[in-house]
Design a protein around this nucleic acid. Structure first.
Lengths: 418, 418
DNA sequence: GCTATTTGTTCAGTGGTTGAATTATTTGGC
DNA sequence: GCCAAATAATTCAACCACTGAACAAATAGC
């Protein structure tokens, strides 16, 4: 049963707390603490950090272990007297998320378990621009079936699927526009209706979520560094430029899920005309094509996904045109980022996608513009750093978004178990 | 006891649910429903909309009535058989919030009750630029004491104070920079330490909150129209240009509370230099001084708070320079707003402060830029409308932010009552 | 071996919700 | 005018999950 819906926040108005919600909420709280802890915590640790009684935590943990969400790990070596604690970790053999990605020149699939470990990862290169959406999705299903088989072989159960696409996604998985793929109004769930479902129904977890790659890449980055900042801007530099906004540990999606369209912020209003109708948009100065052209490289010469690596090589070798192109791109990016930081008061900007490799050359100009234009930069510095996942952030984030949902609302999975 | 802290979200990680939290949460849920309902709901209505039992709702409502947070209203005339319902409304004689504002040429105080009604409102005009911060605050305390006396005469109890200032506010009420007042690093709580406290201590409600006027104006607008959108951008056009961002019914403050600095978004990078160090900032084209200059008016001729009214008069009379100045300002504002809408995917923009009166002339240019530059505008139109509160939004919002907090967490007030 | 110490479990007690039954109050039909 | 139907609000025994204290388990140090 393919069925799709956008990721929406649980409930803006916190619902009423009924008798049973109490346990439901505490299951989520305890599981969340286990997930967020830097080291496997004991039941007593969880009790201390949540304020619950040890008795309650024990009861809740029993439920979580019975539902294959938590496992006991080896006792962590700890100094001092007393009965040794049994560490609690997220189960490596329970539910898992399947992440898929369609991009201009590759397809990807990836499985992430509850603990956030990548348990399977495949990338298949192919130019998908000449391929019809139906065919592209059919190929993706093949990849997904392999991933599923691998996951089940490892004792995992797929609980949901998330698909990253480089475009605007509307309600019910409708891809409104994916310019670089040449897609327009593609109803992904309908095209997948003929294929067997990849993930069993789990209450509270939508079987298929379709989302923008920039959004999911930001989620991936959030996952990759659990101790990192809870709010940041993740900028993906590909052919287009997209951003994912993470606020207080949650992706901010906007009213209709179309947040993060940063590519058309004006950075040179009297500048080059842009296909969007404006002038001097960021994309015209920091988009992949613009940077390649400025560096004197022809896009046709090299596959899109190696463009960033090629630029990085040239820059590292001191190629003057490449250095100049990157400096100009960084300056344009800095103007846009400064606007975002002024608006949202963020203290961390992550450069992802193609920008990850190029950060050493982009960063100085970005920082210069930010410190020049952000009034508060003097009191609170802004960190600009490369993404830790790089181009894989979107698939990993897609898979991670599935398990993240289970961690946030474990009761759905637990009821499914019977 | 003057003591201050910034408004922070309740808790990013929802805390553990203890035995007693159950009632605590349901008090908030029931009170929230009563506050949000378009008409006074009955206990049965609240039970139906929350999913709680009528028995539970009755018990919770009894607590709320005993704590002077809710009152029973006249039975709403209703068709059909059955025992008539008793309507529940927020009490008009319980806790209230005191809002204060210091601005360039006036001081203001205002009292808002739980229901959001403005029960007291004073504005005192005076040029405060030559006045020292200590003296300005002393005058404000006089105004506040009058407001308090009036409120208590009406049976209200002040539960907290919020102060709006036109500048950047750091931790602990420190005004880092208020350029138009000429303030820098003014520790408001310290300067108020010699004066008697204006609001009694209520658990969970900080006695004094100092915040940016643009932020509080957005809160005021959110309050003024409970049926309005839950997410919007509120742009205040004064000497500077500030914005308040409301997401999902809550003010978004950023990591350090400095969100909304929209005045220095570049709209003409090769344009006029700005005091911020950049070039062609929005403020240089849509700020009050710029618009007045472009319209051929001298700022010294008229008090700042009547500048907008004067411009509106001229525009209504067809004055060519004024119309041209407003069109240019609207265009610049549109460029900036388009960037914000692209980034955050908002569907509503409220023009407040001085812009409220000028909306008829600004709106066309703003909409034109938005529909030109926002890729998704074709699928989902953006509404641009004037603020309903106008220049009073900040004081009203300040007072409203106090009662809002009580509605969100009524248990603090209730325990105070003994 | 004994004590101090910490973890995890057991169990009676309690607070708050639940659901059904009951009371209260009105409309509408005969 | 009286009774049935309908809806609102309250009462009360039952139940669920958390609480707190006591207890068992397991280790380090002396």
């Amino acid at each position: 049963m393919w069925h799709c819906q956008g990721v929406t926040r649980p409930a803006p108005v916190p619902g009423a707390v009924r008798q049973g919600s109490l346990r439901e909420l505490n299951l989520a709280v305890v599981l969340g603490r286990i997930a967020a802890a830097p080291r496997p915590p004991s039941r007593a640790d969880v009790a201390a950090s949540t304020g619950l009684t040890r008795a309650t935590v024990s009861a809740v943990v029993d439920d979580l272990i019975a539902g294959r969400l938590v496992a006991e790990s080896e006792p962590a070596p700890r100094a001092g007297a007393g009965r040794p604690a049994r560490g609690l970790v997220l189960a490596g053999s329970g539910p898992a998320g399947l992440g898929l990605e369609i991009n201009v020149d590759y397809l990807a699939a990836c499985v992430v378990d509850l603990a956030g470990e990548v348990r399977h990862h495949t990338v298949r290169r192919a130019d998908l621009r000449p391929v019809s959406p139906a065919d592209a999705l059919a190929r993706l299903v093949t990849l997904a079936a392999e991933a599923r088989a691998d996951a089940e072989g490892q004792g995992l159960t797929l609980a949901g699927v998330a698909l990253a696409v480089p475009g605007l996604v509307g309600d019910a998985g409708l891809v409104r526009l994916a310019p670089n793929l040449g897609w327009r109004d593609v109803a992904v769930p309908e095209l997948l209706a003929g294929h067997p479902p990849l993930a069993g129904p789990v209450p509270g977890v939508p079987p298929l979520v379709v989302d923008n790659e920039a959004n999911l890449a930001a989620v991936g980055e959030l996952h990759a560094d659990p101790t990192g900042p809870a709010s940041f801007l993740h900028v993906s530099g590909e052919v287009g430029i997209g951003a994912g906004i993470v606020l207080d540990g949650a992706l901010f999606r906007g009213v209709r899920g179309w947040s993060g369209e940063i590519g058309h912020i004006p950075v040179q209003p009297q500048g080059r005309p842009c296909r969007c109708g404006g002038r001097g948009c960021l994309e015209q100065y920091a988009g992949q094509e613009a940077v390649l052209a400025a560096a004197g490289l022809d896009r046709a010469d090299l596959p899109a996904d190696t463009a960033a690596a090629r630029l990085a090589d040239l820059a590292a070798a001191g190629h003057p045109a490449a250095l100049a192109a990157l400096a100009e791109a960084g300056q344009a990016l800095g103007v846009a980022v400064a606007g975002v930081v002024n608006l949202l008061d963020l203290d961390t900007v992550v450069l992802g996608g193609g920008y990850a490799l190029l950060t050493p050359w982009l960063r100085p100009a970005v920082l210069a513009e930010v410190s020049r234009r952000v009034l508060t930069a003097g009191w609170a510095p802004v960190t600009v750093r490369p993404s830790t996942l790089g181009p894989e952030a979107a698939v990993v984030g897609a898979a991670g978004s599935v398990v993240r949902r289970i961690v946030a609302e474990p009761v759905g999975w637990l009821t499914r178990q019977g």
